[in-house]
Design a protein around this nucleic acid. Structure first.
Lengths: 156, 156
DNA sequence: GTCGCACCTGCAACTCATTGCAATAAGGAC
DNA sequence: GTCCTTATTGCAATGAGTTGCAGGTGCGAC
């Protein structure tokens, strides 16, 4: 299963004209093994190093940037935390991230297109929906804030 | 004029129970002098240092964070550039930032409330509109991209 | 005016991320 | 299999931002 994802990633890297190097293979393996979860660069790097020995952090960042450029992964900033990366696969959605507990929520594209179309019509602005998450408070945390109580456990 | 803004800032800092220290006064002066423009922490720090002599960068960051917490300024991340700060005053809008040329566009709140209400209804999610900008391509840059031509000059 | 204490500041160290450059290796051509 | 070009890597230095802590200072109380 993750094996299959891994091979798909390899194919797409080759198709894009990028080279499939040892560090990149290791990063693919880590990404494939973690499905759609959000990983920090540090986690990806650690996983990759566990696979193939030392890899420089700059190498990992550059590889991930390259992967993002060809659409394999998304680089999202969930609030003021370190940036996170996750596999794109074929999904098409926008992220809502709670600034209190860090929980991400996925919003299907169909719910955001009307808004993005408005920005396009009114301002000529084409949104790149993926790079930054929409921040705020999730239901649980905003309820906790209005009814003072035990705060939900932050992830930070 | 900027004198007036400065005094308003001082008042609001006192009202919030924060102390009006020398570094904070200097930062207020810089912010007031720059109206609503987007300033990097480095610019603010340099301006403040020019006013009152050495200030540590951590002091500036902490002061700006405090100011943000009481609503005097907004801290926005315009793409992968260093974060920027700008005076809140009384405006209420969302930022669109072009990832190619860096130009920010302000969208009045009235244009975004429908979308934010949808997120609230469907997902119980309360958006914090200010912290992160919406990224994409402005009209000029997306036109330049589709009609291959001289790229517009990036600001990076 | 001066006292006191909580809030702030400056320092130093640290984290996360990016960049320039020389050396290395992927993978197409033969 | 070998060669060659050029993308990619690792290193070292740098930039942006944060944190812990010891000492300094604003400002309300007296």
């Amino acid at each position: 299963m993750t094996q299959l994802i891994e091979e798909t990633l390899h194919e797409r890297i080759r198709e894009a004209g990028l080279r499939l190097t040892l560090p990149r293979r290791a990063i693919c393996k880590v990404l494939a093994a973690n499905g759609e979860s959000f990983l920090t660069a540090a986690e990806i790097l650690a996983g990759a190093i566990a696979e193939v020995g030392h890899i420089d952090s700059s190498t990992a960042y550059r590889a991930l940037d390259d992967f993002a450029e060809i659409g394999l992964v998304h680089h999202v900033h969930l609030g003021n935390q370190p940036g996170k990366w996750h596999l794109t696969l074929d999904h098409d959605h926008q992220h809502l991230v709670c600034e209190t507990c860090g929980k991400p929520t996925q919003v299907p594209s169909s719910d955001v297109t009307a808004f993005f179309d408005l920005l396009k019509d009114q301002f000529g602005f084409t949104v790149n929906a993926h790079h930054f998450a929409i921040l705020g408070q999730c239901e649980t945390c905003s309820a906790a804030a209005t009814h003072p109580h035990h705060p939900t456990t932050p992830t930070s």
